[in-house]
Design a protein around this nucleic acid. Structure first.
Lengths: 186, 186
DNA sequence: CTCAGATGGTCGGACGTCCAACTAACGGAT
DNA sequence: ATCCGTTAGTTGGACGTCCGACCATCTGAG
């Protein structure tokens, strides 16, 4: 058929080795979008578009990798972050709203995560000694143990080999900190 | 833009936060987590942890900025990406499967997005001329117009001012491309 | 030609996120 | 002492993502 234009450039073959030259060389969809932006005269925004789109896609792929490691522990990355935040807290407990502001997520997301962590017996809601509005979250013994084992797994299988050189990692952290600061984080 | 140490990589602006006792305000939660990682002896994974956590948070903040611009148009970023993919296609239409693989999202996510776009009258499902399994998606006139207006808004209000220097943007795109490639994108 | 496996799409469910609206409690002002 | 604005947390709904399961169709082997 003559109707095979942009149709078929993708055949990643999940667990095939990615080194070596594929017959039809794969296209990076973001590089392609960047070309289109230029071609349409949107020159001033082409780089920014590429950066932001890259950020979205990279996050999605990295998150999938993290979730795969966490799955055997029965938690997600969102819940892992809550666990670690409490794990590191000086008093061993944190109010809901503090968790939300540290993680930069909506209060209702914290309620959701804590509901599931509590149902799994990993954290416990307790009363604030002086402010009856406030709910303090603390780890159970099971929660503390799981936090440590999950961290070990994540360190071994993701954080130690993020897929970048050490310099690139350091640069990335700095650049993203600038971006986060501009967007209102910390 | 290179940040050398692992301790205090960034002090970008002279913004003076109120140095008060309010819980968790002036400090960067990721820098704090990095400190904790070191303190617990997880030295080899501290930088990777910071990089990946930064990626998650930055994506979330940037996405919120993008969605805010898109909201008046009645679409989300996911649907915008679908629109633009078809907009740039040579024949003006793409199969569902191709959309999914280009955007690196699950088939069901494409079904979801196309359902909503079709309900809004922005795209149209049409039959593939030879393969009856395949559904082709094409833009309506309204969809094409909205894609152009939304792109103009995004270019003006986000992509032209991503919150980074031009050099940092270029660096970021390259670094994230490495990351994406390592994670199986393109 | 027939049939088994591969491929394209959809459906229902689980999860995390946000928003709007609500209840409960704190705290300052009158 | 009461009132009212603010704050902490929850509920219900919308949306995007993934997964498992399912049906329809295509393709290749016999």
């Amino acid at each position: 058929m003559t109707t095979t234009a942009t149709e078929n450039p993708h055949r990643p073959s999940s667990y095939a080795p990615k080194q070596g030259d594929a017959p039809g060389l794969p296209i990076d969809p973001i590089a392609e979008a960047h070309r289109q932006w230029i071609a349409h005269g949107w020159v001033a925004s082409a780089d920014g578009m590429a950066a932001i789109t890259s950020l979205m896609r990279a996050q999605q792929l990295v998150l999938a990798r993290v979730e795969a490691v966490l799955r055997p522990f029965g938690i997600t990355f969102a819940r892992y972050e809550v666990l670690m935040l409490i794990y590191f807290s000086r008093r061993g407990s944190l109010p809901m709203r503090t968790i939300g502001s540290r993680l930069q997520v909506h209060q209702t997301s914290v309620t959701n995560a804590v509901d599931r962590l509590e149902a799994a017996g990993l954290v416990q809601r307790t009363a604030h000694p002086t402010d009856r509005r406030t709910t303090l979250i603390e780890l159970t013994a099971a929660g503390r143990g799981l936090a440590e084992r999950a961290t070990e797994a994540l360190n071994d299988r993701v954080f130690e080999h993020p897929g970048l050189t050490a310099d690139a990692v350091t640069d990335l952290v700095g650049t993203l900190a600038t971006l986060r600061h501009a967007a209102g984080d910390f």
